[in-house]
Design a protein around this nucleic acid. Structure first.
Length: 617
RNA sequence: GGUCCUAUAGCUCAACUGGAUAGAGCAGCUCCCUUCUAAGGAGCAGGUUUCAGGUUCGAGUCCUGAUGGGAUCACCA
């Protein structure tokens, strides 16, 4: 074994991007807030900040577009909400040409905004090539996701993880972060040794190639086989008169597995060779799954390499007095000030634990990236682990500790709260599920009878895009922290609130643009617009704020919900308004702008969810 | 038992982080293709937001308590 490099020797901090000064958008909303601040000052002699102003969409049953809440000012202004509304309303209507009317109901000041303002707003969105995105903020993020155990194939839980992680990376990029996606492979330990034992006993020199089986499934089958062999051995021992505890103790298979683990730790060449060989099969299989799903990693961290690094941190902590040595020689950290039990850092034999490994990985990652934020996409069963990890790194004085965020998501389980277990076979396999959803997309497409102009190759690509889009949207349109029930009988929805609906709406925008066949003249003039057109513009206008919120709250579902609303509103517009071939050419150009910006927003939104758009369907 | 999460329509989820009469999809029932993609649109029906208190102009949202569900509390990862 070659000598490991120390963490310090690994230092290779990436170049920090330049931050671009953020410009405040001085649109009509900005002006509305500024003038409101002035109005409150001049009417009531009260100083407020623009951030204290709450605006919301006017409910459909009332006249107006934007509603300003007057309740927040009542105390300082010492007036009734209705009166403030009336006074503020006339002030704003007098002072701002784009406010064309107002009415007050209780503390709700409903403002009507002129049609031309909405049209201008649409033009601004259309001419902005980066609409919805932010320029570089100069910050570096490392995002860890997937994190498989290399003794078995990926399952639906990993799919949720990967879809979430990939999307979060795209969202952070759109918000100006430089994002580095990394994977952590749990490639050592007893579980892998079990697969190895089964292979040694029953493998007969077979390989994934010789059997025509995907590598990760091939290895996973031996893991399952170990479970069966072990069970058989136990029942034989019990039948021969042993009790279960002693049977487990005397199991030859389990002894073999433990022996392998010992040999592995002792760098036994034969063991290491088989281990590396089997893992390479698994990785090859994973690569296929990643490619099909459309996710990628810039760098892989292997637990077999990183687990030793934690010892360096352990040593540092001991010297700094943060860690304490127990009587038996193990190392622990006292967390009583955080109302937690002490956490073990090293075993009494000096070997490292999962926690130690994560300390080492964090430090090494900081050496590699010098990041401002570390995001760990890991299931919520590890909430405590990450809380402890952050606290311990803080106690060690690591600056990067405060940038740690555990993007915790709920477990995917089967109907009736049945937890999935590989060993018990109650498992939804990632490859199977992707295949199934693509097949169902194919059926649905054939049923719709729209394949006239598609070659076989194009059709297959479409099924793949639609199927995966549906799968990703299915997982992202609910809040990540909610646990999720997956019913294999019902599977992923292709109807209603699904990616198919989004894609269909997007394709409509593209289709009409092809028919239009020329560039949109940005100087079109329209006198008045329909309520549905206004509603659509107002919704599109929110896109950048939704994108920002989803980064701040680490929540892709905000975008998923927003683009659903956009698609729904666009479809209502579509049935209500004729886009092309109007008597007035200006109207064609205006409505084409609406279609184009809608298409851009849908595409942006889907891309931020990791969904590839298709131009026709 | 301690800690954390969670409870909204028959089902799956929203509700701009404390704002108006709680909204969508699915499932059920009606309508709409001699106009640009009907994988669409319009409508009907469906709710004491688990329960009991509290905070205030206002609570699904915040606080306290109860109940149901989940996770976690290893010298496993």
């Amino acid at each position: 074994m070659p000598k490991r490099k120390s963490i310090a020797e690994q230092k290779q901090v990436v170049e920090r991007p330049l931050a671009v000064q953020k410009e405040e958008v001085k649109d009509f909303i900005y002006k509305l807030k500024q003038v409101t601040v002035m109005a409150v000052k001049s009417l009531y002699d009260v100083d407020i900040d623009a951030s204290q102003i709450t605006l919301q969409d006017t409910r459909k049953e009332f006249e107006g577009n934007i509603t300003l809440l007057t309740f927040p000012f009542t105390r300082q202004a010492r007036k009734k909400p209705e009166q403030i509304g009336a006074e503020l309303g006339s002030f704003l209507e007098r002072g701002l040409p784009f406010v064309t009317g107002h009415n007050v109901i209780k503390g709700f000041l409903n403002l009507s905004i002129s049609d031309s303002t909405w049209v201008d707003s649409l033009k601004a969105m259309q001419s902005n090539d980066h609409f919805g995105k932010q320029a570089s903020n100069g910050e570096i993020v490392v995002l860890e996701y997937c994190g498989p155990n290399t003794n078995k194939p990926l399952h639906i839980g990993h799919l949720r993880n990967m879809v979430l992680g990939y999307s979060m990376a795209e969202i952070l990029k759109a918000n100006g972060y430089q994002v580095h996606k990394v994977n952590i492979l749990n490639d050592r330990g007893l579980a892998i040794c079990k697969s190895m034992v089964a292979y040694m006993n029953e493998g007969e020199g077979k390989t994934p190639e010789s059997e025509g089986v995907k590598g990760d499934h091939f290895v996973g089958d031996y893991y399952v086989r170990f479970g069966k062999m072990y069970k058989e051995e136990l029942s034989e021992l019990v039948a021969a008169g042993a009790d279960l505890v002693s049977a487990e103790k005397n199991s030859k298979l389990m002894q073999q597995a433990r022996e392998l683990l010992r040999k592995w730790e002792a760098d036994d060449l034969e063991t290491r060779t088989l281990w590396a060989r089997m893992n390479s099969w698994v990785y090859k299989g994973y690569e296929e799954t990643y490619a099909t799903l459309g996710v990628d990693f810039e760098r892989d961290y292997y637990e077999s390499e990183t687990y030793e690094y934690g010892k360096e941190i352990a040593q540092q902590g001991l010297e700094a007095g943060v860690f304490t040595k127990d009587e038996d020689g193990s190392l622990f950290v006292d967390l009583s000030e955080h109302n937690m039990d002490p956490k073990r850092i090293l075993r009494s034999d000096g070997t490292s634990l999962y926690f130690t490994q994560d300390l080492g990985t964090a430090e090494m990652r900081y050496a590699h990236y010098g990041m401002d934020k570390s995001i760990y996409v890991v299931g919520d069963e590890q909430n405590l682990h990450f809380k402890q990890l952050q606290i311990v790194l803080e106690k060690l004085g690591k600056d990067y500790a405060k940038g740690i965020y555990h993007l915790s998501y709920g477990m995917v389980h089967l109907p009736g709260n049945v937890r999935m277990r590989t060993r018990e076979g109650a498992m939804v396999d990632a490859d199977d599920l992707m295949r199934e959803v693509v097949e169902r997309a194919a059926e649905a497409t054939k049923e719709s009878g729209k394949l006239s102009n598609f070659s076989e190759e194009e059709s297959q690509a479409l099924y793949h895009d639609l199927g995966l889009a549906a799968l990703k949207y299915f997982m992202l349109n609910v809040n990540a922290k909610k646990k999720m029930t997956f019913d294999p009988a019902e599977s992923v929805s292709l109807q209603g609130r699904s990616a198919i609906f989004l894609m269909f709406s997007y394709v409509r925008t593209r289709s009409v643009m092809r028919k239009f066949g020329k560039a949109i003249d940005p100087n079109f003039k329209v006198k008045s617009i329909e309520p549905i057109e206004q509603e659509l513009i107002q919704l599109l206008y929110k896109t950048p704020f939704v994108v920002q919120d989803s980064a701040k709250t680490y929540d892709p579902s905000l975008i998923a919900n927003h683009i659903y609303d956009v698609a729904k509103t666009f479809n209502r517009f579509w049935t209500a308004c004729q886009v092309l071939n109007n008597k007035d050419q200006n109207l064609d150009h205006f409505r084409m702008s609406l279609a184009e910006v809608t298409g851009n927003v849908l595409k942006l939104g889907m891309n931020l969810l990791g969904i590839q758009t298709t131009e026709r369907m």
